[in-house]
């Protein structure tokens, strides 16, 4: 039997991994503009706003034509019906603060078609407290602080949450991240939702918003957020988000409650 010989390992050469991202031109088929219904009952606004617009081709500028002249009504399970008024082109409003546990039915009549949706206003879950921790060094950014939202999930009911954390000055900025949770495996427990989408710095005033979502609103947001996942692994079959609207229409009719708290970051 041979004696095992010694080998000199040659590991001087390092693999050069080049991955690159760039913007490319792609031809996409044009699509017939489709009606979009967008609105949600909340307990934070006394006014319900329903917007009707049309979709545009994907590479067109994001200017969405409003759809005026619709007849829109929202009724609840107590027998109240609200007729919405068109306050500007394609924007329909009425005084309608959401009440926990109520069911709301939307009816939209426009361009000879009728669309309906139903949603139930969920019971509110409050933010227990907010905490702050230094950003761990495995994230894409470092040197600042992350914000945690603590809450106590009510036992025995299915809950759906959306967490929004932003600088107080950016509250009205368009959202580019959508973070939702369900309580399937944490029902009845104390939970911490960590916002690791961005970090904050001392003296920042940060608003934490916990939305408790209706189930259909959660389904819409969940399937919508899946479309924002990008990069290495995408969904095999991206599809329009699951909506509670009936008929050939895009968008959703949502319902959620809001619990807000504010913190000023200190070192």
């Amino acid at each position: 039997m041979n004696t095992i010989k010694t080998f000199t390992l040659l590991l001087g050469i390092v693999a050069l991994f080049t991955s690159c991202r760039d913007i490319i031109d792609i031809e996409l088929d044009s699509v017939e503009p489709k009606l979009v219904i967008d609105g949600a009952v909340t307990d934070i606004n006394d006014t319900l706003v329903i917007q009707l617009t049309k979709s545009v081709d994907y590479f067109e500028p994001g200017i969405y034509p409003p759809v005026p002249g619709a007849v829109i009504a929202v009724s609840d399970n107590l027998g109240n019906t609200h007729q919405l008024n068109e306050t500007s082109s394609g924007v329909y409003t009425d005084y309608l603060p959401g009440t926990e546990g109520n069911k709301y039915t939307l009816s939209v009549e426009v361009e000879g078609e009728k669309y309906t949706a139903e949603v139930e206003m969920p019971y509110k879950v409050l933010i227990d407290s907010i905490s702050v921790e230094p950003t761990p060094d495995y994230l894409e950014f470092s040197g600042g602080y992350l914000v945690n939202c603590h809450l106590h999930d009510p036992f025995g009911v299915e809950n759906f949450y959306r967490l929004k954390v932003s600088l107080v000055n950016d509250l009205e900025e368009p959202d580019d991240v959508l973070v939702v949770y369900d309580d399937a495996y944490v029902n009845g427990n104390q939970i911490t939702l960590r916002w690791d989408e961005e970090q904050f710095f001392p003296q920042d005033t940060v608003v934490v918003e916990l939305q408790t979502l209706a189930e259909s609103t959660y389904e819409y947001y969940r399937t919508l957020s899946a479309l924002f996942e990008s990069g290495m692994i995408g969904s095999a079959n991206p599809a329009n988000p699951i909506t509670n609207l009936s008929g050939d229409v895009l968008g959703y009719f949502g319902a959620y409650t809001v619990s807000r708290d504010t913190i000023i970051i200190s070192e």
Partner: peptide, 14 residues
């Protein structure tokens, strides 16, 4: 996607 629309301040592909 072929088209896009806006919902709750998000741009959504169609």
């Amino acid at each position: 996607p072929n088209g896009k629309y806006s919902v709750n301040k998000f741009t959504v592909p169609v």
